[in-house]
Design a protein around this nucleic acid. Structure first.
Length: 591
DNA sequence: GTGAAGGGCCAC
DNA sequence: AAACGTGGCCCTTCAC
């Protein structure tokens, strides 16, 4: 592909180029950087293309004149990037957003992200890949040579092939956008796409902000957990070796407690009826009868905490900021949920010994807000079930209200067992729970589980009908959608009963989990706009929870803004039941 | 040694 | 007949 481009190295050319570029509605946008992390490297090139001409802006000469963020010569570029009316088409825009924000001080307005678009179009097809090379090949039939991607972008003089590569990637974005947009429109994914694109800036900002973890407190808490683990390991060794003959002769036969095979053997020697899998939920019913099982589960939980969330996490604290800057994937799951890694801040154990180490730094506060029962409220809204809706409108204790309805007793007469049944079913229906699983987790017989579920769905007939229809629809149409229009396609073998059942459950779960993600994403955008220019910074999100850090004297106001953003986002979609957000100001990340 | 798969547990 | 959805990270085991 021939690309007409010019390399800009001086203020005058930059100024006139920006003036010309600002006539266009959308521009291909790309950056070349010396590293993957904005804290580590420099941003060398910014490329902007109108599809015909491509401007390759070399920032090196500007860096020598001073700080890029404030350099007057770069003002035209900063203004162009910030202008939300000019769409910036980028592939994995979060990457470019972070670099531009960090080094140019610009919150880029108006993204079109071809990677997110490709993910939406793939609609859950895990085989599809979403690198620029793959996406360009898929939509344009064009093979991109990415060999220069990792070349030396810090070189004094960039090679011809480097600048050509840089220009070509930016120039590709326009035709790619056309094809991708066509497909988004025809798949009716444009609304979801906009929702996603508007989240790029908030999430880029969040990653750059980082989440503060107090090293000293973390280590202090870890010591307690280590002691507990040592004690548990010792007790478990004793219990497990009781069944081994050699134990009495040669002392205790040490086994590797982390080895599935060894632990299973030891349990069998003790006469424990080991289920096929020793996963927690399969072992749980045995825990009462066999103390060794209870001990094993306790050990595994503590060991998990130590290995996954032990000292390792401290290595993620960036020396430049003293904070953790995790990677969030905007479309981490086909449902639209985020995923998070390095480290996964969405799976920090709930226990205080872990979360208490995430604190507000001196002079700051954390504002923590989460949606109350958002998935169940979505289900209530979708199904229109009057009884279910009433349980929410009654306020107070939703699970108890549900129990009162299901077991036909006065709310004040609900037993804790009845409330527990209702609560487990309330959560379970969202996943398409079956009687076997319900029996397993509650300890009641299969028969009784079926009876309780019959009562439950008898109480919530429209809920039942909606779930059946959602499951059935997937089998007929092989497609499911969320409130925003996010789509999941299903492929399964019609003769495979297991696959059919799986698809059915997905059909029930996808619209609910996905709509919850839609709502959260909408709230992120509203929040980003309402806290712009204040001390408030987004620092973490966990599916239905948002954490913001701000100056202590702005905490009250920030709390109101966060609550409002979340409620407004929820109310745009959920109409039949109230949206409830629990928001609070705290010094530590505890509920 | 390295990498993938299997099994397990953490979050929502 | 099947058995609860979405992720990431850790360990062991096993193949290369």
């Amino acid at each position: 592909m021939e690309v007409y481009f010019q390399v800009i190295t001086d203020a005058e050319t930059l100024n006139s180029a920006c003036e010309k570029l600002s006539q266009f509605e959308s521009l291909g946008f790309d950056t070349e950087t010396t590293q993957l992390d904005p804290f580590e490297g420099i941003i060398r090139l910014v490329q902007l293309s109108n599809g015909v001409e491509t401007q390759v802006i070399d920032l090196k000469p500007f860096m020598e004149k001073g700080e890029l963020k404030t350099l007057p010569e770069l003002a035209p570029l900063r203004d162009l990037l910030a202008n939300p009316k000019i769409e910036k088409i980028a592939h994995n825009a979060k990457f470019d957003a972070k670099w531009v924000k960090h080094h140019l001080g610009v919150d880029v307005g108006g993204f079109f992200d071809t990677m997110l678009a490709s993910q939406l179009i793939a609609a859950g097809d895990q085989d599809r890949r979403h690198s620029l090379a793959e996406v360009a090949s898929f939509f344009l039939g064009q093979e991109l040579d990415k060999s220069q991607q990792v070349s030396d972008w810090s070189a004094a003089e960039l090679s011809q092939s480097q600048v050509e590569y840089a220009a070509r990637d930016a120039a590709t974005m326009l035709p790619l956008r056309e094809k991708v947009w066509e497909k988004l429109k025809s798949d009716e994914l444009d609304k979801t796409a906009r929702l996603e694109f508007e989240c790029v800036a908030p999430v880029a900002a969040m990653e750059q902000n980082g989440f503060y973890l107090d090293r000293g407190r973390w280590l202090e808490q870890l010591e307690k957990v280590k002691k507990m683990q040592a004690k548990l390991a010792d007790e478990l060794q004793d219990m497990l070796s009781a069944g081994v003959a050699q134990a009495s002769l040669f002392g205790r036969a040490e086994i590797n407690l982390d080895s599935q095979a060894q632990v299973t053997d030891a349990l069998k020697n003790l006469g424990v009826p080991v289920p096929e899998s020793t996963r927690g939920w399969q072992l749980q019913p045995l825990a009462n009868e066999y103390p060794v099982i209870a001990k094993l589960l306790e050990y595994r939980s503590v060991a998990k905490g130590l290995t996954s969330f032990g000292e390792n996490i401290l290595e993620f604290i960036k020396p430049q900021t003293g904070r953790i800057h995790a990677d969030f994937r905007l479309i981490g799951a086909p449902t639209g949920r985020f995923s998070c890694s390095n480290p996964n801040l969405q799976q920090i154990p709930h226990g205080e010994e872990y979360r208490r180490a995430f604190i507000a730094p001196e002079g700051k506060k954390l504002v923590i807000a989460d949606y109350s029962q958002i998935e169940l409220r979505i289900l209530a809204d979708f199904s229109g079930d009057e009884n279910f809706i009433n349980a929410f409108n009654a306020g107070a204790d939703f699970h108890a209200m549900a129990a009162a309805q299901v077991f036909n007793v006065q709310p004040e007469d609900v037993t804790s067992e009845q409330r527990s049944f209702a609560k487990r079913l309330n959560f379970g229906v969202v996943y398409g729970i079956g009687a076997s699983r319900f029996a397993m987790m509650t300890g009641v017989s299969q028969n009784e589980a079926e009876n309780i579920m019959r009562r439950y769905f008898g109480t919530y007939r429209k809920l039942d009908a909606w779930l059946r229809e959602a499951g059935g629809k997937v089998l007929r149409e092989r497609l499911s959608r969320t409130a925003s229009g996010r789509m999941m396609r299903f492929r399964f073998d019609e003769t495979d009963g297991k696959a059919i059942a799986g698809a059915r459950r997905n059909g029930m779960n996808f619209p609910i989990q996905g709509t919850s993600a839609d709502i959260l994403k909408r709230s992120l955008r509203l929040l980003h706009d309402s806290i712009a220019g204040t001390s408030a910074k987004l620092v973490n999100i966990v599916h239905d929870e948002i954490i913001v850090e701000c100056d202590a004297n702005e905490a009250e106001l920030t709390c109101k803004k966060l609550e409002k953003a979340m409620c407004d986002a929820g109310e745009e979609i959920v109409k039949k039941v109230p949206i409830k957000v629990d928001a609070k100001i705290a010094d530590e990340w505890v509920k």
